[in-house]
């Protein structure tokens, strides 16, 4: 995990389509929700090269 500040749409004029997260606890919860679960292979960049289920027709 990086230590740099997380860039967020903090502008008060941000459009309603954006979630203007200023609550770092809520942000960290969202981040935790979308992490890849298998930390042991996180160094494998192909881990992210995924798409949704292939539909064979």
């Amino acid at each position: 995990m990086r230590n740099e500040p997380i860039p967020l749409p903090r502008d008060a004029a941000a459009p309603a389509r954006d979630l203007p997260l200023t609550d770092s606890v809520a942000l960290q919860r969202l981040i935790a929700e979308v992490r890849q679960c298998d930390a042991s292979i996180v160094a494998d960049t192909t881990l992210y090269n995924r798409t949704y289920h292939r539909h064979n027709r």
Binding site: M1, R2, E4, I6, P7, L8, P9, A16, R17, D18, L19, L21, L27, L30, I31, A32, E33, V34, R35, Q36, T45, L47, Y48
Partner: peptide, 29 residues
């Protein structure tokens, strides 16, 4: 609602902590 979650999250890299933007799932968007 925001409490319902289901946000579309965009990232600057493959690090989930490196958030670019979080979009609400507004119907029709």
């Amino acid at each position: 609602t925001d409490a319902d979650g289901g946000f579309f999250m965009l990232f600057n890299s493959d690090d989930a902590g490196d958030v670019h933007r979080i979009l609400r799932p507004v119907s029709g968007s």
